[in-house]
Simulated scan of single mutants.
Amino acid sequence: MMRVRLDNEDCQVALGRRLGRALGGHGRVYLEGELGAGKTTLTRGVLRAHGHEGAVKSPTYTLVEPYEIGGKRLYHFDLYRLGDPEELEFIGGRDLFADDALCIVEWPSRGAGWLPEPDLCITLSLSDPGRTASLEAFSDLGRSVLMTLSQEMGEDDEIIEQEREKQ
């Protein structure tokens, strides 16, 4: 597990960029946290890492926003308004979670029992100042991403500070 202190929105986007590069365009990242914790802001950084420069809004009513960037498929899910996990079947969710796609899921607990296991789960929480992100790996890909992030974020990092915890 890794915890990262994010003092402001720029720090959240910077972490998202690093996360996006480390993922390499595939995987399943689940974002937990209360309303306003910055799940969509972090997602914006991930998309920026892949070259997306347009607006990034939470797909609260459409459930998923697809992005095709540089030949890579990225899907941003927001399950906050999901009535039943089976609704994901009706929108073609199984096809969207293909191994070669990057899927970022806000409010994954709403899809419990239907969603595949994540590679990485990130819990964002409000702190003073800013936010705290707790990152936990659930696969080899997730562990590789955490290792890459850990190596990138040294003590001299001016944007993001981290606390390492032993698993």
Rank of each mutant, 00 (worst) to 15 (best):
M1T: 12
M1P: 05
R5C: 03
N8E: 14
C11M: 06
A14F: 04
L15G: 03
R17H: 02
R18D: 13
L23I: 11
L23S: 05
V29R: 04
Y30M: 14
K39A: 12
T40M: 08
R44F: 01
R44W: 00
R44H: 07
R48M: 07
A49K: 01
H50C: 04
H52E: 11
E53F: 02
A55L: 15
S58Q: 13
T60D: 08
T60R: 08
Y61S: 06
Y61P: 00
L63Q: 03
V64T: 10
V64A: 15
P66K: 11
I69H: 00
I69S: 01
I69T: 03
I69Q: 08
I69C: 01
K72Q: 14
L74W: 00
H76N: 12
D78L: 09
L79F: 10
G83A: 13
D84P: 00
E87F: 08
F90M: 13
I91H: 05
G93M: 08
D95Q: 14
D95L: 11
L96C: 04
F97A: 08
A98H: 11
D99H: 09
A101C: 15
A101R: 02
V105G: 04
E106D: 09
W107L: 09
P108E: 11
S109C: 03
R110G: 02
G111W: 04
A112P: 00
A112L: 13
W114C: 08
W114E: 12
L115C: 07
P116C: 14
E117H: 09
D119T: 08
L120F: 12
I122P: 00
S125M: 13
D128K: 15
D128V: 13
D128Y: 05
G130C: 12
R131Y: 10
S134H: 05
S139E: 11
S139K: 06
L141D: 01
L141Y: 03
S144P: 00
V145S: 05
M147H: 13
L149E: 05
S150G: 11
S150C: 08
Q151Y: 03
E152N: 05
E155R: 14
D157W: 04
I159T: 14
